[in-house]
Design a protein around this nucleic acid. Structure first.
Lengths: 204, 204
DNA sequence: GTCTATAACCTGATAGAC
DNA sequence: GTCTATCAGGTTATAGAC
């Protein structure tokens, strides 16, 4: 039985891995292709041999990063078998854990999206799936008086914001570099409880 | 009575104004000094005559933007005469209004800070003032069981996140471009109420 | 202060040997 | 597939005339 999917050449993977690291830290405009080939430890000409251009390589990385940024939300918010409370808990815990492993992801994705450095079409479907999910219907049922988008933005804001603002938070001395991750662990419980509270609060 | 403070030359102000616009949209690395001089309608050599380098001009703009990003928080969180509830309301309202006038400000400041494109020292004092403010002491008194930083990050996250994630939110169809500002107006009331609720919630 | 011209360098990309 | 060498164009910055 022969391999159907060809092995990705080790060189190609080395370039991808280096590109992930450098693009994530410096963004598209701030990255020099030489930074990537140096980081990858390969000859400069090979980048163009494998990916044709900086732009194409960036789009390959961006594709991956958007899937990572939004992908793990979809199975949770679309699950028709779980309650709203269960979904809140799962989103908060899963998303926080993903961010603890990829702390620079949100600022990268959101900033590149704002700058328009790539073709946004591939993410439209993903993001629309979330907007039409079971989660949104459950929120709308629980609180017909408030646009469900408010709760969703609030939940994601509570989860994501500390990661986006991390440099500023650490400069303030509010949270030290070494205690940041521990605080994010604490927030899993806090945010879950807060979201339940504000959703079940009696309409004014 | 003669002017003590010399007038800023019209050319210098034209360059600053163009730089504000271009840096904010494209970031430091994505900006070409020619974009700025073209936008300003002035000769290219004048940028270096007035500001010596792209880097120095950027630092002048960044200084302004950080003051705008954090400055209007300080008088509110440091006011010893207001209650915690009043401070929450004032922060939410004032900050939302500032963001409605400067929607690209957070992603710009936070992304440049993450990339380390400027000297961060000037903001340390500002950010420490907030961390040691009356607001923080009042939160600590109201909820000795939870690190006050959690409430602060939560409040700012609820306010700022929609602006940072705006491109993605609009792609999702959750909020249309034309209804975004209206939703942010709605959030003033919602966030104020939510913050009061979670602070006064009985400790578990 | 403002302009033209250009220096000095950097960057992405490719040609062509191996 | 990988390498060396190099090009073409872009970018910041400055010299020097007005």
């Amino acid at each position: 039985m022969s391999e159907i999917k060809p092995e990705i050449s080790s060189t190609e993977e080395k370039i991808m891995e280096a590109a992930r690291k450098v693009f994530l830290r410096k963004g598209y405009a701030g990255t020099r292709t030489r930074d990537i080939t140096l980081e990858a430890g390969i000859n400069h000409a090979l980048l163009n041999y494998y990916f044709r251009s900086k732009q194409k390589l960036f789009e390959a990385i961006m594709q991956e990063k958007i899937v990572k940024f939004l992908g793990n939300l979809i199975p949770v918010v679309n699950d028709e078998t779980t309650s709203l409370e269960q979904k809140i808990h799962l989103v908060v815990v899963n998303y926080t854990e993903m961010l603890l492993e990829n702390p620079d992801l949100p600022i990268f994705v959101l900033s590149e999206l704002q700058k328009g450095n790539f073709e946004a079409i591939p993410i439209v479907k993903v993001v629309k799936d979330i907007a039409n999910s079971s989660f949104f219907r459950q929120v709308a049922t629980a609180r017909p008086d408030i646009n469900p988008a408010h709760f969703f933005m609030t939940m994601l804001g509570m989860i994501i914001f500390p990661f986006v603002a991390r440099p500023m938070i650490e400069l303030s001395g509010l949270v030290s570099h070494s205690s940041f991750n521990g605080m994010m662990e604490e927030r899993k419980t806090l945010i879950t409880a807060w979201m339940k509270t504000i959703i079940h609060e009696k309409p004014m």
